[in-house]
């Protein structure tokens, strides 16, 4: 195990392909925090986030043979994680739309919390978490990749398969929304 820790991603992948579970375990340990930032940023600290996190690595395991190393492993896994998170959010949205009247759910998207409500009791992590959850999925994904993961705007565009201009405009608008939500709570 100790020897495995010193190996590079491609070597670990090669060993995993040959059936070395410990090598795959090292890959999980190496990237679980990165994937946690992505899926918890997208879905909140929930059971779904854990499931999507697990599913990310399982999907990667199933497609080990397809990984050619064109992009860094972290980016490859992040792409899987963000797509699974967006699928999960869409599923949730469809379920919610069965219970809410048309348009009603949109009201909560950018609902700015009043100072004095439960936000006051939350710590910083929870405040940021709740603020992120109030962003529309498209805005949330660019914020998660750019600010939480620290990807460049170009990499963010590549991962989300969006034009760079769209990512830049979403970042500007998302920042504005986050400012609306967070500034009253920071004062």
């Amino acid at each position: 195990m100790k020897d495995l820790l010193g190996l590079g991603d491609l070597e670990l992948i090669e060993l995993s392909r040959k059936g070395d579970d410990q090598a795959f375990g090292v890959i999980i340990s190496r990237y679980e925090h990165q994937i946690a930032r992505t899926v918890i940023g997208m879905l909140g600290d929930t059971e779904e986030a854990e499931d999507v996190g697990q599913e990310t690595f399982i999907r990667f395991f199933r497609s080990l043979d397809k990984f050619r190393g064109d992009s860094a492993l972290g980016t490859y896994l992040t792409r899987i994680a963000i797509n699974l998170s967006l699928n999960e959010l869409n599923k949730k949205k469809k379920t919610l739309s069965l219970f809410y009247k048309r348009g009603e759910d949109k009201l909560t998207m950018f609902d700015v919390p009043e100072p004095g409500d439960e936000f006051d009791r939350s710590d910083k992590k929870e405040i940021v978490d709740k603020a992120l959850q109030q962003l529309d999925h498209g805005f949330r994904s660019v914020i998660v990749l750019r600010l939480l993961e620290g990807y460049s705007t170009k990499d963010t565009a590549d991962i989300l398969n969006l034009p760079l201009g769209t990512v830049l405009s979403r970042l500007s608008r998302a920042q504005e929304k986050l400012k609306e939500i967070l500034i009253p709570l920071m004062q």
């Binding site: 940023g41 992590k125 986050l178």
Partner: peptide
Amino acid sequence: IRNMISSRKVS
């Protein structure tokens, strides 16, 4: 705000 978000630790 950007610092608050980027310094968020989750696992």
